[in-house]
Amino acid sequence: MLYDHQAVRSQSRSGECYDNAQAERLWPRLKTEVLEVREWPVFADLSDAQASVADYFDYYNHERLHSSIDYQTPYHAHQQLLQPNALNCPA
């Protein structure tokens, strides 16, 4: 089926379960926080699905607080890592 649709198969390296850990952590949240709370049919059409997922990604990265990073947003935590002081580098 992938070949028929000229799709490229993507998978992590053999034995490397952490290759895609960030994405794998996101999907269960998307399912429980967006998909399971909607009535069937979940989306009106493909455009609605794409917009809903994009909105959720924006929320997840810019508004949703994450306990694993001291109740910050991923965007804020990433911005802190980009600061020279965060890596103990001289300015």
Rank of each mutant, 00 (worst) to 15 (best):
A23Q: 03
P28S: 02
V37L: 11
V8A: 14
Q11C: 05
A23N: 05
V37N: 07
F43W: 03
A44F: 02
L30W: 00
T32A: 13
A21G: 09
P41R: 02
Y3A: 15
R25D: 05
Q11S: 05
A44W: 03
H5F: 09
Y18M: 10
E16K: 07
G15Q: 08
N20H: 03
A44Q: 01
N20T: 00
E33D: 14
S14M: 06
A23F: 00
E33A: 04
Q22I: 02
V34T: 13
Y3G: 09
V42C: 11
T32L: 12
A23H: 01
Q22T: 04
D4N: 01
V8S: 14
V37I: 13
N20G: 07
C17S: 12
T32D: 11
R38F: 08
E16V: 11
R25A: 11
R13I: 11
S14Y: 12
L26M: 09
R25N: 11
Y18N: 00
Q22Y: 01
R9A: 13
N20A: 06
H5M: 08
P28K: 02
E16F: 05
T32Y: 04
N20V: 04
W40L: 13
P28N: 00
L35E: 02
A44S: 10
E36Q: 07
E24R: 05
L26C: 05
E24I: 11
L30V: 01
A21S: 10
P41G: 03
L30A: 00
F43P: 02
A21H: 05
Q6R: 15
E36W: 10
E36L: 11
A7S: 15
V42A: 14
A21N: 07
D19C: 05
R13H: 11
E36P: 05
H5I: 13
R29W: 05
V37E: 07
